[in-house]
């Protein structure tokens, strides 16, 4: 069942189109990657979902119903550009934001204790934010985002500013929240983390939706029928065995007489044909399909689009 549905959203700012007929939908308990180059319109879309600005046309539904101000407590938002009051004490500040999200004081205090104990940072309670490092402040911001148990989490570049250990910690928290049924809308440029944790993605480029769907099917869409063949034998004879139906994309020597070759199947040829062709020449140790990385897909989708526009 879908939790968040964005239907045909368009938004224009003084002569420039920020979003052009965008529709996406996220399921309960999935991590949805919202991707796109800088200035593509991701933040505009996130602001519309958060009801910070309104769309020119289209609508946002939460659990099938038009989103209202009352739904704010169901959403947790970690903005990309984020900050805290520098002079305010940590606990006081988290409490303040929790109350603004609609938690009562007692519940908020209890939850603050839970989270701070979990992160082992209760000693920060009486520190002023200006005394914290950037990474420490980011942790506090993460807690502020999730403290009220939102059904929908919107995380804009959640890993930026964290060292690898803390990034891992946050990643684990995100996975834990997902397991509890929280839907997460993740906007990031970090394609590795998209690959690792996203179930579905949408790619926005120049205010238009370019790609949308489950990560697997998007990858299927972009796969190029290429296989990585690991073999024992001579690279030269492997190459010689291939004929016009195959193209050797790249090869890599593992040790003296073992190598991996990436072979693209052309025309109607299938994997069996490839095996038949190379088996006489070398001893095959393993074979698997090469799927494009999110990085490749991102670059291809964005540049392909630009190329198309130039024609």
């Amino acid at each position: 069942m879908s939790l968040l549905t964005v239907e045909n959203i368009s938004k224009q700012y003084a002569g420039h189109v920020a979003l052009d007929d965008i529709s996406i939908s996220t399921k309960k308990g999935e991590i949805f990657g919202l991707l796109g180059p800088n200035g593509a319109g991701k933040t505009s879309l996130i602001r519309i979902i958060n009801q910070i600005t309104g769309p020119d046309s289209g609508r946002v539904l939460l659990e099938g119903k038009q989103i209202t101000r009352a739904d704010i407590s169901k959403i947790g938002y970690l903005p990309e550009e984020r900050g805290l009051y520098k002079k305010m004490k940590v606990k006081e500040q988290v409490l303040y934001f929790a109350q603004l999200k609609g938690l009562d004081k007692t519940t908020a205090k209890r939850k603050i204790d839970e989270w701070f104990e979990k992160f082992e940072i209760t000693s920060w309670y009486d520190k002023k934010v200006e005394e914290l490092s950037k990474g420490m402040a980011q942790k506090i911001q993460f807690i502020i985002t999730v403290l009220h148990d939102p059904e929908l989490l919107i995380l804009d570049e959640p890993f930026s500013g964290f060292d690898p250990i803390n990034a891992q910690l946050i990643r684990n928290e995100i996975m834990e929240l997902k397991a509890k049924g929280t839907s997460i809308l993740l906007s990031t440029h970090n394609m590795n983390s998209v690959e690792e944790i996203c179930d579905s993605i949408a790619l926005i480029n120049k205010s238009k939706l370019v790609l949308n769907g489950e990560l697997k099917s998007v990858k299927e869409q972009f796969k190029s029928n290429t296989y990585a063949v690991q073999f024992k034998g001579n690279m030269f004879s492997f190459g010689n065995a291939l004929f016009a139906g195959f193209s050797l994309e790249k090869s890599e020597q593992i040790d003296e007489n073992r190598a991996i070759a990436h072979v693209k199947l052309l025309k109607d040829h299938n994997l069996n044909d490839l095996l038949k062709t190379v088996m006489p020449a070398v001893e095959i140790e393993g074979i698997n399909e090469v799927l494009p990385t999110m990085n490749d897909i991102f670059i291809q989708a964005v540049q392909g689009k630009e190329g198309g526009e130039n024609e």
Partner: peptide
């Protein structure tokens, strides 16, 4: 200005109308 430059406002406006 303080809320704007420190970007606290980004967190605030997701909870309360400007």
């Amino acid at each position: 200005i303080e809320e704007k430059t420190s970007r606290v406002v980004e967190i605030l406006v997701s909870s309360i109308k400007p």
